[in-house]
């Protein structure tokens, strides 16, 4: 057990605990705030795993943008503040499938990697990742920009019924 292992275990416990609270809490706004804790802990995991740029992009886009959008949606759908008793469907099939997927994958990974150790590489900087991105992955990068444009246009059309329903 090195220092990195202890950090990984602690941040992982925070991430999994907050993630479970996101899907079990009875209060909508708190689910969004637990999601912030979970995503922040995952960003910390990225930092320990030497993925510096991914960690900051995670903080910027997920914690900064996606969660704020989700909280906007919670408010725009007039969600009640406080406990909502009607948030859940019957839990047994969901618990079976979700628990089976999570624990099954965990058992698979634990069996594949046992307790082996690897050395962490030197901290990856934005420069090395950017060089690799624009050297080997230029075409997917450009396709993603087209996809973002399509998502933008699609979101506008979906949210304007006077455009979407025109024959």
């Amino acid at each position: 057990m090195t220092g990195a292992d202890v950090l990984l275990l602690a941040l992982g416990a925070v991430a999994v605990g907050a993630g479970v609270l996101v899907v079990t809490t009875d209060q909508l706004v708190r689910a969004g705030l637990y999601l912030v804790v979970c995503l922040g802990a995952v960003a910390g995991l990225y930092l320990v795993l030497t993925a510096e740029l991914v960690a900051w992009v995670q903080v910027l886009i997920y914690v900064g943008a996606v969660v704020v959008l989700l909280l906007f949606a919670v408010m725009l759908t007039r969600a009640p503040i406080g406990r909502s008793p009607d948030l859940n469907r019957p839990g047994l099939p969901a618990a079976l499938i979700g628990g089976g997927a999570g624990l099954g994958l965990a058992a698979l990974f634990a069996d594949a990697f046992r307790w082996s150790a690897v050395d962490l590489p030197a901290p990856g900087t934005a420069e090395s990742l950017g060089t690799e991105l624009f050297r080997s992955w230029v075409l997917p990068f450009e396709v993603l920009s087209v996809l973002l444009l399509a998502a933008l246009v699609g979101a506008i059309i979906v949210s304007r019924p006077d455009i979407g329903s025109r024959p």
């Binding site: 899907v23 499938i97 999570g102 990974f109």
Partner: peptide, 22 residues
């Protein structure tokens, strides 16, 4: 660094997400 720790954390998070969607 033990690779099994973040892998298992990822698997458990995925299970929590599947549970939440259902």
């Amino acid at each position: 660094m033990r690779p099994v720790i973040p892998y298992v954390i990822g698997a458990l998070l995925f299970g929590a997400g599947v549970y939440g969607v259902l």
